[in-house]
Design a protein around this nucleic acid. Structure first.
Lengths: 253, 253
DNA sequence: GAGTGGTCTAGACCACCTT
DNA sequence: AGGTGGTCTAGACCACTCA
């Protein structure tokens, strides 16, 4: 891991005379990143280094760093330091390409870890989605996905065992899309998605290595096959700085 | 504006023994909201009230409140206090219904203020979008939109004057969609959108009445008519707690 | 004018990562 | 073992809102 060059010569304040100190500091760091002087995955100086170099209190420095984090310019690794964020990947829900595919197409290295897989009884909400009775068995899968080794999303998938028996015996670290297509012959013809900002908290935050409360994006997706059956239901919690959504579509009435 | 009932009887800690104090406080407040004891637009007790009631330092209390803000559960009005967030509206980009329409359909009261409108020379990026030469004149409109009186988004719209001459002489506080359709006969047949998390900073934050750095959502949209001409280009900056995106679509190859 | 959040300081101790 | 960020305290002054 490279380390940042002396931060002493951050771009000058120029005429930032206005506004709070933490925004002025934010600007200086942001400029360094935008000018390309600090590259993705570079580690910033430590908070205490900033402190002695600038004479600003640590709390104020953390305020500036948190700002940059909400903007997606930098991220933290717990108790290790602050790093410049790599570019976000583009997610196009109108394409039925799985994570492994579109991340690869964008020149990045995707990875998947299956954290949990088991059979669970359907909650009433899930029973509703799959049009079955509550308590009926469902496959439940929990995965963590990475880009260039950095965890970017946690997902919880639910699949109807009736449509994909023995699914859990497969290795789920590869593309689920692929497994469902190749082994069970499913083609998805309709996708219903709900996208909303959220905060990553507790276990989800922990597994993504972010501080609880970091902003994130929650994507809920229901996939249907050509006969209108629910093939897959999943909830994805993304790091907010890792995703960008792009859709190009014809307009309905 | 109603005020919160005594917060002293926030739900008990029970067994939250684990974790930082600010998360425990977050939980108590979150529970009050989820249980419906604190309703949308209710004001929370002041930070100093929390301080004396709980004996926790103000910084720590602000940490808890900031958490709830990132989660979208509460929001602040500058130097006035913290309030429980109203529900988000659902935005469906596959429908060509303007803001005024879909907000109304969801039982809320939409509002629009035009903050600026003028002719500007095309930047090279805009010239690219509109397929014209840089420096050519473009209409530029800046609007703030509200739901139930609360500002939720700032938008900057660009329109080609060749397609809608005299556009700026119309009142732009109504639906631009409507004006383009009724007065100029445009029907949008294709929509290209880019959605990404961002932070609301500087003027944008100020005009939405949020603290600089609050998480937000940036929606960039390019609308085309049936002849493939760019009818409208706009960038919308949303409060993150005000929007939810829903799409339901057939899948391409 | 009283009260609010916004900003800032200067400490402290801890759990954990890194070497 | 030394350094890092994570958490917390106890103050302070300010700009602003609201009654």
């Amino acid at each position: 891991m490279r380390s940042a060059p002396d931060m002493l010569d951050l771009p000058r304040l120029a005429d930032d005379a206005e506004g709070p100190q933490y925004l002025a500091l934010r600007d200086r760091i942001a400029r360094s990143i935008e000018l390309g002087r600090l590259k993705p995955e570079t580690r910033l100086p430590s908070e205490r280094q900033f402190q002695t170099e600038t004479g600003i209190a640590r709390g104020t420095i953390r305020e500036a760093l948190s700002q940059l984090e909400s903007e997606g310019l930098i991220y933290r690794r717990d108790r290790s330091g602050w790093y410049v964020s790599p570019p976000a990947v583009t997610y196009d829900p109108t394409r039925w390409a799985g994570f492994m595919t579109y991340v690869g197409e964008q020149g990045r290295v995707p990875g998947t870890e299956t954290l949990d897989k088991r059979v669970v009884p359907a909650s009433s909400a899930m029973a509703d989605v799959f049009r079955m009775v509550p308590g009926a068995p469902l496959f439940y899968i929990e995965r963590r996905r990475t880009i260039d080794g950095r965890p970017v999303l946690m997902e919880r998938i639910v699949v109807d065992p009736a449509l994909a028996p023995d699914l859990l015996t497969h290795s789920l670290d590869a593309s689920l899309t692929e497994i469902l297509k190749v082994h069970y012959g499913f083609s998805v013809s309709r996708n219903r998605m709900d996208i909303r900002p959220c905060a990553l908290i507790r276990e989800t935050a922990e597994r993504l290595g972010v501080k609880s409360g970091t902003p994130g994006i929650k994507v809920t997706r229901t996939s249907f096959d050509d006969r209108g059956r629910v093939v897959e239901y999943d909830r994805e919690y993304w790091r907010h700085d890792a995703i960008r959504i792009h859709v190009d579509l014809s307009v309905r009435a």
